[in-house]
Nucleic acid binder design. Sequence first.
DNA 1: GGATCCGTTGTAGCT
DNA 2: AAGCTACAACGGATC
Length: 519
Amino acid sequence: MKTSVVWFRKCLRLHDNPALLEACKDKDSQSVLPLFILDPAVVGSELDKISPNRMRFLIECLSDLDSQLQALQNHGLLIAFGNPSEIFKEIKKYSEYPIGLFSDYCSEPHGLQVTQSIQALFSGTDSSSPTPVEFFPAVHTLTDLESVISAPNFKQPKSMKDAVKLFTEYFGLDEHGFYRVPDPLPVPSAIPSFPKEFSSHPLPFPTISIPEIRTRIPFPTPEHECYFIGGETVALRRLKEKVSSRPEFVNQFRKPKTCSTNQSQDPQEPSTTGLSPYLSTGCLSVRQLWKECEKCHRKDDFTKPPESLHGQLLFREMFYVLSRSVENWDQVNGNSMCKKIDWGELDENKLSAWEKGMTGFPYIDAMMRQLEATGWMHHLGRHAVSCFLTRGQLWQHWKHGRDVFEAKLLDSDWALNNANWLWLSGVAPFSMPYFRLYNPCPDAKSSLNAETKSASFIKFWIPELKDFPPKYIFEPHLAPESVQISSNCLIGKDYPRPIVDRKESARENLGNFKKSLAA
DNA sequence: GGATCCGTTGTAGCT
DNA sequence: AAGCTACAACGGATC
């Protein structure tokens, strides 16, 4: 007889959760302890390492998980607050029965280190019989990263072509040419009872309840900042609404053609699926999403990678493979995927103008204010603002932008965030001609903005410009003074002048980039 | 081994 | 409105 701990790590859900399912199926599990650990190394000891909005989203994920567990068990989620291996040390000592640990694999450096110390803890000589510890692979990603990167012929993928080759070999193809991705696992029909000694308080390790966490972060968040609500329930509903019930949308999906300035009735509803925050927190299984897209593809003709939704997921997978196999993935030094560019000294004013959405470039500023307020930004907006901050206009080191995204994005993901900054700043050896810049003022002629629809997006996030004629909305400093007066917004007073000349800075930066590459 | 091709999603200006 | 061409011109893979 044993107590099985199901440690929810990067997988805050009941569906397609092998750790939970196996713990429930295990004949020796006389009780199951569903556990989440709030790790100060991740969230900060004052819960201030990530933005309040990200904390808010996380709480909602945990709260949803808790109520779903309660429906299947006589108890809900236990939330511990501290260093995971210390907590497991205490759990082992305190538990009435031997502990079995069921969890999911984590590929991030901190996660790997934690996994290692826990494995050491459970294989220690202090217990008479070895206790089973299992970290299930291929839970947060489609592939088992360890087996991918340890394959004898493994080569780090640098393009979609490489990635397709790698994943075709890994999965194999079925008779219709689809990858043989296993079906997602079902939700367990019942969960063995909660171990009773863990339901009495206090426990010999720090715990924290959801209401307690709420009191410790700045609340309430204004309503318009809570567009994405965390949790598996919302994730599965969104999956159905955005993907499963829209085969035409899925089959015709072309990422570069989607609109970055959300032109639907709802100014906050993305033109894409908006599922990324649910993938990063593991409220939604990537395998489940893959399979739902595949079901659509089986009905009709469909777009192909890299533009398709499957293509987007393949990039995600490729970046995960790289993040696990490239040493020092988030560093400049010792990172084989990072070209050395002389970014010079940090310019606090430029960085802060960028972060606050006060650069005087409305498209850039609207994107950055949306990020600050809601924790989300369209992928092409991310391209534009990261290019703008680095090789495009402001010539600031990519790591500063990376840190801002890391703290604020609801879909923050260590592997992907670093990958995208390496790529967009031009330092990664992925195919990306460094001279290919994004225009921070994409005007009405550009394919990005048919007519003046984007103006409503910009006005929504930059109320200073709400009366401005769409003609000048991307470059308001070019509006004649009379227009500025009648639009109730004087440029340089009510809204900043552009902090750099966009063409001049681009020309200069291109030269600097070339110089650094030649050096 | 020099030429050529191509790269997740560019931009500007024309028809 | 969508599609074409020119722009500028890297670096790795392929021929």
